[in-house]
Measured scan of single mutants.
Amino acid sequence: DVEPGKFYKGVVTRIEKYGAFINLNEQVRGLLRPRDMISLRLENLNVGDEIIVQAIDVRPEKREIDFKYIP
């Protein structure tokens, strides 16, 4: 289970104008929005990159997770 405030290693699987989709595993995916990136820009991410993200909002009923990147 993903818990708000905890850090997780994930893989960038898709990049859109509104953010990057990060997979923690095959069943768990969330969104990293540009506003939640500190010292990292969306255009510097590539599909396949491994990054450490912090879960900031977890909505299991909608199967949605918002992430934050903190270097």
Rank of each mutant, 00 (worst) to 15 (best):
N25P: 04
I56P: 01
E61T: 10
E26H: 15
N23L: 09
I38M: 12
E26N: 14
R59Y: 05
E61Q: 12
T13S: 13
G5C: 08
I70W: 14
P34V: 13
R29L: 08
I38N: 11
G48Q: 04
N25V: 05
V2G: 02
L45A: 01
G5K: 07
I15S: 01
R35E: 11
R63L: 13
A55Q: 02
D36V: 02
M37E: 02
L24D: 00
N44I: 08
L32K: 00
P4M: 13
R35P: 05
D1C: 11
L45D: 00
P71Y: 07
K68M: 12
V28I: 14
E50Y: 15
L24S: 01
I52W: 14
E61F: 08
P34H: 08
K9V: 12
I38Q: 14
G19H: 03
D57M: 14
Y18W: 14
F7P: 06
L45S: 01
A55D: 00
Y18C: 04
K6D: 04
D36Y: 08
L45N: 00
Y69A: 04
E61K: 07
P4I: 15
I22V: 12
I65H: 04
D36K: 04
Y69W: 08
P34D: 07
I56T: 10
K6R: 14
E50H: 15
L40Q: 06
E16Q: 10
P4Q: 14
L24T: 04
S39F: 10
Y8A: 01
L45Q: 00
G10Y: 01
D49S: 06
Q27N: 15
Q27W: 15
I15Y: 01
I15E: 00
L24N: 01
L42C: 03
F67G: 01
P4G: 07
A55T: 07
A20G: 03
I15C: 03
P34N: 07
G5W: 09
A20E: 00
R41I: 08
V47F: 05
R35L: 08
P71G: 12
Y8H: 02
R59H: 08
N25G: 11
P4D: 06
R59P: 03
Q27G: 13
D1W: 15
V28R: 06
I70P: 04
V58E: 03
I51D: 00
D66T: 11
F7Y: 13
N25F: 09
P4C: 10
I22P: 00
R14E: 06
Y69F: 12
F67C: 03
V47S: 04
V53M: 13
L31S: 02
E26S: 14
G30N: 02
S39I: 10
P60I: 11
E61A: 13
Y8L: 03
E16S: 11
V28C: 08
G48L: 06
M37K: 02
N46P: 01
R35V: 09
L45G: 00
T13F: 08
E26L: 13
A20Y: 04
I52Q: 07
R59D: 08
K6Q: 12
K6G: 10
R29V: 13
E43T: 11
